[in-house]
Design a binder for these strands. Structure first.
Lengths: 238, 238
DNA sequence: CGTCAATGGACTGACTGCAGACCAATAGAA
DNA sequence: TTCTATTGGTCTGCAGTCAGTCCATTGACG
């Protein structure tokens, strides 16, 4: 049994600042926070926000440049831009992923369920600003009309948008993190048009419930949506 | 409005390894993972688990020694022990705490609700080992019979125990973290015997539901328990 | 009564990440 | 065309952290 010790005496940091920074930038790209062709914040700003030295940030950017995610241009109105064509995901076999992630999959799925159903519930209970409603609707629309290659990223962004309107930044961050942990796994699963359609319906139900202020329905809809994915993932890994 | 940027471009690390380590040790003490008179893991082990050099860990321990939390003894069967009498919490006024924490209180409360209700639900849905049941029952009993000065710590430990039996280490860690964020605030609120009794009843309901495998009731009971505390906290800060 | 294993305590040399200053390129504005 | 603000690119010296090694102390056990 895992004692409370394991929770409180877990590693203070996952890796060195460089690695963590790379991970964070990848998060921004893979979760669709900055889309293809869009620009990252200027190095000085970004370094300040990440609480990392500019040197370290630049090393991270360099790594992403080398692996084909971004490109930098100098001069005023320059910056670091996300490439229009992103590198393909690894596409490892589900079997190997099981071995890699092991019990971590279940861990992530349980955490995800708690975070996202909680976020949906909290979001519905809140009074949203016009900008928030707009953003939510926009993400929903863009997800439902996304091409197959873009679907995963748009889906991530929609789920993140829902977490955002919960009004809890910590909840948003945690949601983004756990999504990243599952992303590699999701990439190993083929996207079927029928599933996709079903997914869109569920997204619609969730957002509708949130906008209607019905927190019970919002939680319920999110719960159903997530359990579908969870079952799919657990199934592929057995 | 807080964009998704803020979630993904948040600081990579809260402080330097030294500060983080101090925080983690305080977590272990204040959440009752290691009680008064008990021993911390040996420096070499602990440093490895925290993924921190022994030098850094020792500096952190030194800081806690200076502030009266722990004491170290050399030799075989020695070690670093938590003091029987812990330093008193700051007891700042609620008004000042509001200013300090600001919107962070609401953030933490929303996150806490999501995590702990999710944990209770997941725990009830799981088949618990005998050791887990034992641990849960023990924490419950010790909380209900705790003296006023020990109550907060025992309560923390019970909530942490519930998170543990969710089976998701990440969920447990997150629960511990958010509890630490709220702890200072909780210390600013007087403990009334009547509230305490009510709290014990709720704890009992939660644990009973979990042991019965009734995930709906478990979530419900936890939800009620937390909303009481949340209302109390929000009230004191208005 | 000595032995010894396990613990905290102390030191060194190397490396990493940092803040800050400065250089170089770029494109819009004057 | 020239100016200039903004951006990425580069360098240096400093503080923090690390892995590894050895020392000092202690108390149970033979």
């Amino acid at each position: 049994m895992a004692g409370a010790d394991d929770a409180v005496f877990r590693p203070v940091r996952a890796g060195n600042p460089f690695e963590e920074t790379v991970e964070r930038l990848l998060q921004a790209i893979k979760l669709g926070v900055v889309g293809p062709g869009e620009r990252l914040p200027a190095e000085r700003d970004l370094a300040a926000r990440l609480n990392v030295s500019r040197v370290t940030l630049r090393e991270a950017i360099r790594a992403l440049t080398d692996s084909g995610y971004v490109e930098s241009r100098r001069g005023r109105y320059g910056g670091t831009f996300v490439n229009e064509r992103l590198p393909k995901p690894r596409r490892t076999s589900a079997k190997q992923l099981t071995r890699e992630l092991g019990a971590g999959v279940d861990d992530a799925l349980v955490l995800r369920s708690a975070l996202e159903t909680g976020a949906a519930e909290a979001a519905a209970a809140r009074v949203l600003t016009e900008a928030e409603v707009e953003h939510l609707r926009r993400c929903l629309a863009e997800t439902s009309t996304a091409k197959l290659g873009d679907y995963r990223r748009m889906d991530s962004r929609l789920h993140l948008a829902i977490a955002e309107v919960s009004g809890s930044p910590s909840l948003t961050s945690a949601t983004a993190d756990v999504r990243m942990r599952l992303n590699e796994l999701l990439d190993a699963i083929p996207l079927l048009a029928v599933n996709l359609e079903h997914s869109n319906d569920q997204h619609d139900a969730i957002v509708t419930a949130i906008l209607a202020g019905d927190s019970v329905a919002a939680r319920q809809a999110m719960q159903e949506h997530l359990s579908g994915t969870a079952a799919l993932l657990r199934g592929f890994l057995t």
